[in-house]
């Protein structure tokens, strides 16, 4: 499936932005765990709860390690391409996805920017069709705004049978 490499990549700053949000997630996860351990100790919960907590901790640690390496590979895997007829996306580390949506079927286009994306001056483009929604995460602000306008222009074209 390598013969269909799409044109564009995300902003390289996406890696940092994702990493930060992952780290925040990890910290929150560990705080929750710590609180649970404290509650377990303080109220002397049944033994099996202790075991579940240990299992959860092990899982959280593994997940945290994965979260820290994920942004790099996810960024490497992300490609998108937009032309007059189609929006094409491809992404995924262990499981690859290639999505093709005819632009004529797009019903709404929007950009979004959360606090972390704002720090890095990035934007996400969200494209909604009749039954699904797709996002191109973390584009340079300029690129995102331009792409949104391009998409909006292309999307004016509708198919006759609707």
């Amino acid at each position: 499936m390598n013969d269909s490499v799409l044109e564009n990549k995300l902003s390289p700053r996406a890696q940092k932005a994702w990493l930060i949000s992952e780290v925040i997630g990890i910290v929150i996860g560990f705080i929750v765990l710590a609180v649970l351990f404290w509650l377990d100790f303080h109220f002397a919960w049944p033994v099996w709860i202790g075991w579940i907590l240990i299992a959860l901790t092990a899982y959280t640690v593994l997940d945290a390690v994965w979260s820290l390496i994920k942004p790099k590979y996810l960024y490497e895997s992300w490609r998108y391409q937009v032309d007059e007829e189609y929006i094409q996306l491809s992404y995924g580390i262990l499981k690859k996805e290639w999505v093709t949506v005819p632009i004529a079927k797009v019903q709404s286009i929007s950009t979004r920017q959360g606090p972390i994306l704002r720090i890095y001056q990035l934007r996400e483009i969200k494209v909604e069709t009749m039954g699904s929604s797709h996002a191109i995460p973390a584009l340079d602000e300029q690129v995102a705004i331009q792409l949104k306008d391009t998409l909006a222009e292309y999307a004016k074209l509708k198919e006759v049978d609707e």
Binding site: M1, K95, E97, W98, T100, V101, G131
Partner: peptide, 13 residues
């Protein structure tokens, strides 16, 4: 073909 409004391919490891 014209009635297909979206398609995707996926490939696991």
């Amino acid at each position: 073909r014209q009635k297909v409004i979206e398609m995707s391919i996926s490939q696991s490891f």
